[in-house]
Amino acid sequence: MDPLGVTFLKALALCTVLLGAFAYMTLIERRLLGRMQHRYGPNRLGPFGLLQPIADAIKSVFKEDIVVSAADRFVYVLAPMISITFALAAFGAIPGGPAGSLFGFDPWIVDLDIGLLYVLAVTSIGVYGIFLGGWASNSKYPLLGSLRSSAQIISYELGLGLSVLSVIMIAGTLNLRAIVELNVWSVSPWLWPPLAVAFGAFVISAIAEVNRTPFDLPEAEQEIVAGYLTEYSSIKWALYQMAEYVNMMTASAFISTLFLGGYKGPTVLEPWIPGISDWPIVWLVAKMALFMFLFIWLRATLPRLRYDQLMRFGWVYLFEVALAAALVTGAVIAFVL
């Protein structure tokens, strides 16, 4: 346990880093999308467009902050704050390295025995931001966006929870550090098939939970203007964008932690550089980058699902597949091991 002051500083540093990463993820995303769609993307401001996020930040701060006169004022202002607060809070439980590896301090903000549930709980509260924002705008497209968002998130939380169940059963703990230290894949090759299925189901559910293409129905711009974002401008709009990207990063880190060994590096490098697989932060960020790239890649590749396809996929396929993976994992643990 670190002293309270250090924990506070770490939390402050984490928020700063996450928001800085958000600013540059927007640039990376636009540049990558440009590359994938055979065009340039923003490349005018500074070398490779590196100053673009700063210009964007200045622009969104100095834009007029409109509060719709028909809006429910209190909820309208509260909603983006809920989104960003819970998005940032969720990341705190994810361990960045072994105990005491960050200059003698622990590379995480809180270490909970129920770390896994903490992340699920905090992210599930974050969704209030989206659908309260849509409702409070008192306008039809935002309301449609929020209805879609709550239906989608309720539906895909089932897939998320069920696919996590396999990991919990194998690890026998809800502590994220213990899950990383155990490495669920090393328990038995018998568990590989259900784990692989659970991994796939989890990644898909996580993309749906963070509202990314092909699951970005709450803000589908061709159908409902910008969904829940329609009536938001200036810094409140920016807060929603921040929350979306921070949620993406939390999802990436969460997937890596549960299924891909989290902060652990490959041990094959140990003979050359001893201790490299225990370096804090580095490996987690590398794995997160992998998933962030995957999210952007999917956005450039897949068209958006229709609403009925979304519901059918979630309830008929994802739910059953994740349930089957959990049952098979349980059967293997009970009868084979």
Binding site: L117, S124, I125, V127, F131, S150
Partner: peptide
């Protein structure tokens, strides 16, 4: 009671109340 707290948030905060609000908004 951390476990209870997490379950309280996930079940009541994250699922049941979301459905409540969903119905309220759906019926406008």
């Amino acid at each position: 009671a951390h476990f209870l707290a997490a379950i309280q948030v996930i079940v009541y905060g994250g699922a049941i109340m979301v459905l409540f609000l969903f119905v309220i908004m759906l019926l406008n």
